[in-house]
Amino acid sequence: MVVGFAIVAAWELVTAAGVIGFRRPIYNALALVGNMLGLAVLFLMLNAQFLFAAQVIVYAGAVMVLFVFIIALMNPESDVTLGPARGSEWMYGIVFGLIFAALLGVLLVNQGLTGRSGPFTPEVINAVGNVQSVGTALYTTFLFPVEVTSVLLLIAAVGAVYLAMRRIR
């Protein structure tokens, strides 16, 4: 388990660096696909099989296919051909990275989770089934957020169709 986690974690960091680092957008998109599949494996390690399936279908499937199609359709320029960089972006990036590295250092000092433990141990979840337990939580405790999400998806679909029909100058 530890070895597997180390391998997947290294894969995640490498592909995330690929998302930032590659100059051509199609390579960024492919690195992000790899990153999302690695994350799905991490969900499996965390006994979240439902999230694993959702991650693979929604992210690695739908969202990334959309990205790759748009890149193939638009053939966007790489950052190199966008003209001279301002030079200040890297400064912002480095400053933000240092701030977050400090936050991660705090996490290394306080290693324990102090929250109240709930009833859903892996044994309880696996006795019922992962999808069944998540579905029960979704449609009882979290019924209102789920309904709001369905309205949000409808608004997004209508908005995308509207934007696609409209021509801006």
Binding site: A16, P25, N28, I71, G93, F96, G97, F100
Partner: peptide
């Protein structure tokens, strides 16, 4: 946290809206 930081750095550094 490391993945979030890398995403944020990329958000600040990259200039192509798709990326």
């Amino acid at each position: 946290g490391a993945l979030f930081t890398m995403g944020a750095i990329g958000f600040l550094v990259r200039r192509n809206p798709l990326v």
